[in-house]
Every structure is written in structure tokens, then in C-alpha cells.
């Protein structure tokens, strides 16, 4: 199979370049990550992140034929050749397919992603009905791979000020949690022309999410909560 891989090593100097690779591999039942590992076995200078190899840890997000995906759950058989593999867009490249995720993590931290509940703790669990718990579905499963945020033009233009779809989805996860007591502070934190309202409903995030989550919908819910509390 034919590949075109984005290559860049800041230490070696020079510009990024595209490496053409012809790999002898039977695509049946194999994922893109299998191919990249096979390529790395021949040329170990290719750098990428990977861990779980089953789509749950979020390490190997990259741009494949123009779309952000997790290499480990992208079947080779679905990809048109030459398969063009680039680092996630919109983040500084450290080397090859490895980007600096810090701008993404910083926005995640900015929404204060932890449950706040200052009421005395019961000796047992806090109760939550299955219906209330279901409000978290579609939000708590986020694996922080950054496929969505780095597919978002609003984030490309405002990485310092716009929280981005992944961060906003997590903000919603805590707003929606009936056990959390900081809803109003969380809404204050987002009521800002940039942090939330830079979302223009482009919906690239929904397309890009490898877990089938819908950040745009969560952002819509935060918006309506903000409207509701104003009236």
C-alpha cells in the first residue's frame, strides 16, 4: 500500500517534508496503526504516540486523508491510496506525527474539570437516578484525543481564548451532573464572547469524534442554559 507521511524533526532543522512509503501489507483486518508500526519497524525515525491500540486512550489521533482519526481504529481497507498521514492540524508539531497538546490540555483545565460538591459526604454513595445519570451519556466517554478541537476552525483562529469542543463537552459533563454544585460558576466561566460563543455551529467536531460524541449538541445545551438563567 502507498503512504504519504508528514515528517519533521526540529532538531535536524530544515522544513517539514512528505515521505512516500510503499509498504507490503495485507489490509484485511488491519488498522492504520498496524501499518505505521510496520513502517516504523523499517524506519525507526518515524515518531508517533500510541498506547492502548483499541481506541480508548486517545493517544494516536492524527489527520488521515484530510480527516482527524484515531489510527488504531481506522481500518486500512477504508482508506484511499496514497494514504496521507499528517499530525493533527492547529497545534505546534514537535516531531513527525507528534503535536504539542498543551494548548488543548490548557483549555480542558480551564473549565475546572472536576466535580464540586461541598455538602457533607454521606457514608454511602450520593444517590442519582438512572435518568439523571443518563444526562452524562455522550459526555463522560470523551477520551481527550483532540480530534474534534483540532478540526474546529474557531479553535484554529482562537486557541488561546476559545475553549473548543472537547473542553466545552467536558464543561457540560459537569454542568449536567446532578451531584455538582458549581453550575452557576461554571456558566459564569463560559459566558464570554470567546470561551463559548466562538462556536459557530460548523459541526466539524461531530464529524471528527471517533467515539461518536456530539460536542455541538452539548454546546447548544450550555447556550440555552445561559439564555434561561438570563430570563
Amino acid at each position: 500500500m502507498k503512504f504519504r507521511l508528514y515528517r519533521y524533526d526540529s532538531e535536524a532543522g530544515g522544513k517539514p517534508w512528505m515521505q512516500e512509503v510503499d509498504l507490503d501489507i495485507d489490509p484485511a483486518g488491519k488498522m492504520l496503526l498496524d501499518a505505521l508500526i510496520a513502517i516504523k519497524a523499517q524506519d525507526e525515525t518515524l515518531s508517533l504516540r500510541r498506547s492502548c491500540r483499541e481506541g480508548v486512550c486517545g493517544s494516536d489521533a492524527m489527520n488521515v486523508n484530510g480527516r482527524n482519526r484515531l489510527a488504531c481504529i481506522t481500518p486500512l481497507s477504508e482508506l484511499k491510496e496514497p494514504i496521507e498521514v499528517r499530525p493533527l492540524p492547529g497545534l505546534p508539531v514537535i516531531r513527525d506525527l507528534v503535536v504539542d497538546m498543551e494548548p488543548f490540555y490548557k483549555q480542558y483545565r480551564s473549565i475546572r474539570p472536576w466535580l464540586v460538591n461541598d455538602s457533607p459526604e454521606p457514608e454511602v454513595e450520593r444517590l442519582q437516578t438512572p435518568e439523571d445519570r443518563a444526562l452524562l451519556d455522550g459526555a463522560w466517554e470523551c477520551i481527550l484525543c483532540a480530534c474534534c478541537t483540532t478540526a474546529c476552525p474557531s479553535f484554529w483562529w482562537n486557541p488561546e481564548t476559545f475553549v473548543g469542543p472537547a473542553g466545552l463537552l467536558q464543561a457540560y459533563r459537569f454542568i449536567a451532573d446532578t451531584r455538582d454544585e458549581a453550575t452557576s460558576a461554571r456558566l459564569d466561566n463560559l459566558e464570554d464572547p470567546y470561551r463559548l460563543y466562538r462556536c459557530r455551529g460548523i459541526m466539524n467536531c461531530v464529524d471528527a469524534c471517533p467515539k461518536g460524541l456530539n460536542p455541538t449538541e452539548a454546546i447548544g445545551r450550555i447556550r440555552s442554559l445561559l439564555v434561561k438563567r438570563r430570563v
Binding site: 472536576w114 466535580l115 460538591n117 459526604e121 457514608e123 454511602v124 454513595e125 450520593r126 444517590l127 442519582q128 437516578t129 438512572p130 439523571d132 445519570r133 452524562l136 463522560w140 459537569f174 451532573d177 451531584r179 455538582d180
Partner: peptide, 20 residues
Amino acid sequence: AVYELEHMGLPFSRLGNGRI
């Protein structure tokens, strides 16, 4: 240890009566 995780916010699935 499990109750403590729940207090920290772990989104356990729930039974009809609201328990873990």
C-alpha cells in the same frame, strides 16, 4: 474506597433506586 470514588464524581451506572 468505592464510595469515595463516587464522591469524587465517578459516573457510575445507577440502579432504579439511585444507588450504584
